[in-house]
């Protein structure tokens, strides 16, 4: 198409003398937000994570409701109090909760543009998450050796489904953390600002919060109040 035809076409559109050039418009789309509230809300990546976590809330809500429903109905066969080792899991829980703190430190390092500290804390976070997963693996193998499996009874069914889905979320988080650590080491986050990193840290906090709920529900309450 020739330039003339293009000009003619533009004249034909006739969007008025106040029309915005589309390039300017797109620049304005990503203009820096004014208030802190907008800063959080209007960043697409962070917003994506918040909304995704909302949908996760529905998912875990359904699974947790199912667990509680069957607990309330009374369970035949081994139950949480008999089958689970509170102390052992409490130690591994400490690692997961601690990793929420270390990722916070990573966030701080990001703002301070300290690449080495950022990578360090990301790796520490990932290692602590990994320890938690290993702990979960040990717990699973003990239970399976005691013949407590998904198909044993309703406790096995709900326990393995709930903690299993949580474990999968931790593993997904570990992958994300590893990628972040790698990118950080390569200097991608030297600018002191990364929506992606913040979004991953929010995800990691969410996984932690869910575990706090699960730990309270499955371990603490049966052991001390059951």
């Amino acid at each position: 198409m020739s330039t003339d035809a293009r000009e003619a076409r533009r004249a034909e559109m006739n969007l008025g003398k106040d029309a915005t050039n589309a390039r300017d418009m797109m620049a304005q789309n990503s203009q820096s937000p004014q208030t802190p509230f907008q800063k959080i809300l209007l960043d697409p990546s962070k917003m994506l994570m918040v909304i995704f976590l909302l949908s996760e809330l529905s998912f875990f809500g359904a699974l947790i409701t199912t667990y509680l429903y069957y607990q309330a109905g009374g369970i035949k066969g081994p139950n949480a109090k008999e089958a689970l080792n509170f102390g052992q899991t409490a130690i591994f829980t400490a690692f997961l909760l601690g990793s929420s703190g270390t990722i916070f430190l990573a966030d701080r390092a990001l703002v301070k543009r300290n690449r080495r500290a950022l990578v360090f804390w990301l790796v520490v976070t990932a290692v602590m998450g990994l320890i938690f997963i290993v702990g979960q693996g040990i717990e699973y193998s003990t239970l399976i050796n005691d013949n407590i499996t998904m198909s044993r009874n309703l406790f096995g069914t709900t326990f393995f489904t709930l903690t299993g889905f949580h474990g999968m979320h931790v593993i997904a988080g570990l992958l994300a953390l590893s990628i972040m650590a790698l990118l950080a080491a390569l200097g991608d986050f030297d600018s002191g600002h990364s929506s992606a990193l913040t979004a991953v840290s929010w995800y990691w906090h969410f996984v932690d919060v869910v575990w706090v709920i699960l730990f309270t529900m499955i371990y603490v309450i049966p052991t001390f109040f059951g």
Binding site: I51, F52, S55, E56, A62, L63, F165
Partner: peptide, 16 residues
């Protein structure tokens, strides 16, 4: 985002 996770949870349990 509010409704489909319920379906996914039900499907996961059915598959289990």
């Amino acid at each position: 985002i509010g409704a489909l996770p319920f379906l996914n949870a039900a499907l996961a349990m059915l598959l289990a």
